[in-house]
Design a binder for these strands. Sequence first.
DNA 1: ACCCATATTGACCGATCGGTCAGCATAATC
DNA 2: GATTATGCTGACCGATCGGTCAATATGGGT
Lengths: 228, 228
Amino acid sequence: MTAVSATHESPSRERIEASILLAAEEVFSQHGYRGASLQMIADRAGLPKANILYYMGSKQALYVRLLNRMMHRWNEVLEDITPDSDPATVLSDFIRTKMVLGQRYPKGSKLFAAEILAGAPFLSDYLAGELRDWVSSRAAIIRQWSAQGKMDAVDPRWLIFLIWSATQHYTEYSAQVGGILGRDALTEEDLESISTFLEHVILKGCGITGSASNSAPNNSADAHSAGN
Amino acid sequence: MTAVSATHESPSRERIEASILLAAEEVFSQHGYRGASLQMIADRAGLPKANILYYMGSKQALYVRLLNRMMHRWNEVLEDITPDSDPATVLSDFIRTKMVLGQRYPKGSKLFAAEILAGAPFLSDYLAGELRDWVSSRAAIIRQWSAQGKMDAVDPRWLIFLIWSATQHYTEYSAQVGGILGRDALTEEDLESISTFLEHVILKGCGITGSASNSAPNNSADAHSAGN
DNA sequence: ACCCATATTGACCGATCGGTCAGCATAATC
DNA sequence: GATTATGCTGACCGATCGGTCAATATGGGT
């Protein structure tokens, strides 16, 4: 259509595809693969349904494309996170990175969650392959830290799962958290408060008295924000 | 059909309804409200589709019935959990109770999770009402503990969310956890190991040096079970 | 002007959706 | 044994599902 040799992507095509992906991520994350319909996606994207199929091929192709995009965003940020420096900075970075990741891509995170709730039919290979290796390598490092007396001898896998679950909770259960707190969305101060809390509890709980930690011997930080 | 005056429930009716609820919980938990179909539920229950509607009225009625059942199971176990005795036993009980609850009703827990992922259209009242009050009352107690110096002055709401997320993770993300660990399901030893880990990290992380805690000054317990 | 690759979409397909209903089966009541 | 209330379900309803396709629109290259 709009020029560009003939290689791959015209700018308008990219724009349209982006809007479809945005709409699809929203619908899939709310209703899961089976519960989502192309018509809902089309309506949200402001396009006729046939147009969605024209650009994406099929419902399944659109879905796995979203899944892969989210996987790569995940990898990008977390790949370089683990030197074998001190546990405090590494775990602290891990917590905060995971926290902002969930805030940056809330829909994508929910998409992942729905896929796993459904039994991970499209992700089982990824989980048992790439992700498993990622966990193994990090677990090995944590075990070394424990052996060196830098932290308690906790099971590294449970520690990783703990950080995952605690950080993901606020994006994937935003409806629950919001309902209980009485807010539609978490504020910037909430996020900072939560991150600090998690750092405090997890690092201290693992017996890490690190350099980059702001965990005082007692009493963490802010007040309790009054509250419900 | 099978006798019993005419008051309410015949035993055969109860049996059939139970089998429908079982099948429906399975399907709804995997695919969410929209993604589930009455035909799938009927097939899994071994009944014709019309029979499901005969007993349950409608898809929505069946769904909210499952939601309510899970809510009540939840309340039953957790209602009596909070005296104002010492933080260590209370939090420890809370962690372990929540852990076994997820193991006892994995399908129901996933049903809840799917509902909240979808934006909690059927649960918003419950979240902003009953559950919110529950959190408030527990938060008040935790704040007292902090004020009495029994534990660090962490935000009680974040602490509650942390315990929720950490315990729920293993049931709702069983596909992910299983894929990474290379098991189909968690063993009894896994569960004990995880519970001990969470007790250790959370109690110690909150500065609780309780009576009922098995958190040694360093090194928690078991080895690392080799690992993947 | 003509061509042609690409973009776009209304109309349509068989399958499945949640739900209704008429009709038959079953079994307690008289 | 006739009556009646209830259990049960095949057949069907309009709506919507994912997907196909023919027809049309568009716009640059020649």
